[in-house]
């Protein structure tokens, strides 16, 4: 969203084994029906949209989701989501992935997870939440 030239392909997350005739005639060389090309070490950056680093975007998104969902320790998953999401966006810029949007989503969710967990820890440890809950709730450690 910050980079309008980024390929925003909402179907990028689909496995390449999708239907043969259903895929839209997207620009670039590789169709979905073709097997994923071997890691092209010398691929020219900026040339067509490869998919060999699409897994980064998926990982970023999943890490971000887990970070937001799971506990007050969201930064445990949020920080990796930021890192992997950044790598995913970089891969998208270099033409090695076509799902940079997923990486961006992972980065956003990662920040949300970090912010949420930090606020929660501040509340529990600095603002007296610990003392307030400690009386009535005995079995509430992680």
């Amino acid at each position: 969203m910050s980079n309008p030239t980024e390929p925003q392909d909402p179907y990028g997350a689909q496995p390449p084994s999708g239907g043969y005739g259903a895929q839209p005639p997207a620009g670039g060389g590789g169709g979905y029906g073709a097997p994923p090309p071997p890691p092209a070490y010398g691929a020219a950056p900026g040339g067509g949209y490869g998919t060999e680093k699409n897994s980064l975007g998926v990982w970023a998104l999943v890490l971000g989701i887990v970070g937001v969902l799971c506990c007050g320790l969201g930064f445990i998953f949020g920080i990796p989501a930021l890192i992997v999401g950044g790598k995913s966006k970089e891969a998208a810029r270099n033409g090695q992935a076509n799902n940079g949007g997923l990486g961006q989503a992972g980065v956003v969710l990662g920040w949300i997870a970090i912010a949420f967990s930090v606020l929660w820890l501040i509340y529990v440890f600095a603002l007296g939440g610990l003392a307030a809950f400690n009386d009535g709730f005995s079995a509430t450690t992680y």
Partner: peptide, 15 residues
């Protein structure tokens, strides 16, 4: 030890 209640905080979802 994390066995002491609140020693590492609480899980907001559980709470």
């Amino acid at each position: 030890s994390p066995h002491d209640s609140g020693s590492y905080g609480f899980c907001p979802i559980l709470l």
